[in-house]
């Protein structure tokens, strides 16, 4: 039972990050009806941008010293007093990394937003109104371009990046079992859940969110009601890329920055289809359950079996429910 709880909580934490990535795919689909196969590679770019602004830039010769490691007097004094390996020490380490973490996150978000805008303007806008097949295949072509470009621009493999939150070990007990977690993972989960919830509320209640939903319902009617559909498209792409940048930064702190991050997008794509392409709730449920399932597989069968869990799950669910758990059915006319 104790093991079960531990792995279930681990699963929920990675499920939250799946949900954060999935929200990008769902938002783009809702607004533009394009399923973005290259989303994983946009996330990889987010991770590399975070690496650039949080590691490469602060270490550059022209960067001020406080950017790489912030050492005000009070911090040095507090560090000297803190006992070794204590939670306080980890927090203080994090505080001295804070400037570059902030620079990294904001840089990654801005750079990825620009990238998303570029992709939308050059590749997606000319395809408005084209067949689904062409749009899918353009994002597939984008995969090659992004992965090639990233290996020309960044050479480093699996580099280390600073954690977003203090990485103190957290121990607590539920009933009679001890649960052991890392602080950074916990904060990552909270960030992911807040962003997910925020986006769902934004789409539900704000004016621009309603514009997105109207465009999803019927493009030409939305146009005639005074909604600028191209603006909605680019807004959805920017939204997907900014959430992707944050997800990329989180993944980078968990697994290191490497070209394999792009493949992550495919398992999230499987999760999105599992939950239903246009349903935030369904995707959230799917992300959480796949996260937990993966953790259970890791526990029972070993780490490598966990990587095919989303694919097996999506195949099984598609056979029973062709539009995912909560996706809306397409009505077809002959």
């Amino acid at each position: 039972m104790g093991q079960f709880l531990q792995f279930a909580i681990n699963g929920l934490m990675s499920g939250a990050i799946y949900a954060l990535i999935a929200v990008g795919i769902v938002s783009v689909y809702k607004a533009t009806k394009v399923v973005n196969f290259a989303h994983g590679y946009l996330i990889m770019f987010g991770a590399y941008f975070y690496f650039t602004f949080a590691v490469i830039v602060p270490q550059a010769a022209w960067a001020p010293a406080w950017l790489a490691s912030w050492q005000p007097d009070w911090l040095v004094a507090a560090k000297a007093d803190a006992p070794m390996f204590s939670p306080l020490g980890a927090v203080l380490d994090w505080v001295s990394n804070l400037p570059r973490i902030i620079l990294g996150i904001s840089g990654a978000v801005i750079a990825n937003a620009l990238l998303g805008r570029l992709v939308e303007r050059t590749l997606m806008r000319p395809l408005m109104g084209q067949s689904i097949f062409a749009m899918i295949m353009v994002t597939v072509g984008l995969i090659s371009i992004l992965s090639g470009a990233s290996s020309i621009i960044w050479t480093a493999d699996a580099a280390f990046v600073p954690h977003i939150a203090p990485n103190t070990p957290v121990r607590f007990s539920i009933g009679d079992t001890m649960i052991f977690l890392f602080g950074a993972d916990l904060v990552n989960m909270v960030i992911a859940l807040l962003l997910f919830g925020g986006i769902v509320l934004w789409v539900r209640y704000t004016k621009s969110g309603i514009a997105i939903r109207a465009t999803a319902e019927d493009q030409s009617t939305a146009y005639s009601m005074g909604i600028s559909v191209p603006k909605v498209f680019s807004r959805a792409w920017v939204l997907a890329c900014t959430t992707g940048a944050i997800a990329g930064a989180i993944l980078a702190t968990r697994n290191g920055v490497s070209p394999t991050l792009g493949l992550f997008g495919f398992s999230v794509l499987a999760i999105v289809l599992l939950g239903g392409l246009d349903s935030y709730v369904g995707v959230f449920i799917a992300a959480m359950s796949v996260g937990v399932l993966e953790a259970m597989t890791q526990w029972k069968l070993g780490g490598e079996w966990a990587e095919i869990v989303p694919y097996v799950a999506v195949l099984l669910v598609l056979l029973v429910r062709p539009h995912g758990l909560m996706g809306s059915k397409e009505v077809e006319r002959i």
Binding site: V138, V140, S144, I145, A149
Partner: peptide
């Protein structure tokens, strides 16, 4: 070279689709 080949491959695919 290898990344360049990858990029050209993607560009070819997109060019033909568009």
């Amino acid at each position: 070279i290898a990344p360049l080949q990858e990029i050209i491959f993607g560009l070819l695919l997109i060019f033909f689709l568009l």
